[in-house]
Amino acid sequence: MDIEISSYIVLGALLFGIGAIGFLVRRNFLIQLMSVELMLNSVNLLLVGFNRAHASSHDGQVFTFVVIAIAAAEAALGLALAIAYYRFKNSAETDLGDLLRH
């Protein structure tokens, strides 16, 4: 079955939109982390999709792996932060962390 590039783009955009809106709307640290993961993966999907459209090169796939590695690192760091944050604030509400305000 041959899937149109536009399908990839639409799905990628949808996923990215869900992730972005989730990140902006939800207040929970873990949920926001998940939203970031979703955005990263939507980009991965696009990269793979475009690589399919331009099958002569493998740049898209290679780059996907790089993104996955970065996402893993980010998740590890993010979760560590989440734990530290919870210990500090006794809550996972990110709105409480406003020490860097003006």
């Binding site: 972005a20 990140f23 902006l24 709307v25 939800r26 207040r27 926001q32 990110t94 709105d95 962390g97 406003d98 020490l99 860097l100 305000r101 003006h102």
Partner: peptide
């Protein structure tokens, strides 16, 4: 301008968006 610097994650994220 400094009013924008709320320090709240989602507010700043909105600005980025």
């Amino acid at each position: 301008v400094t009013r924008l610097q709320s320090g709240v994650v989602h507010a700043q994220g909105t600005l980025i968006a």
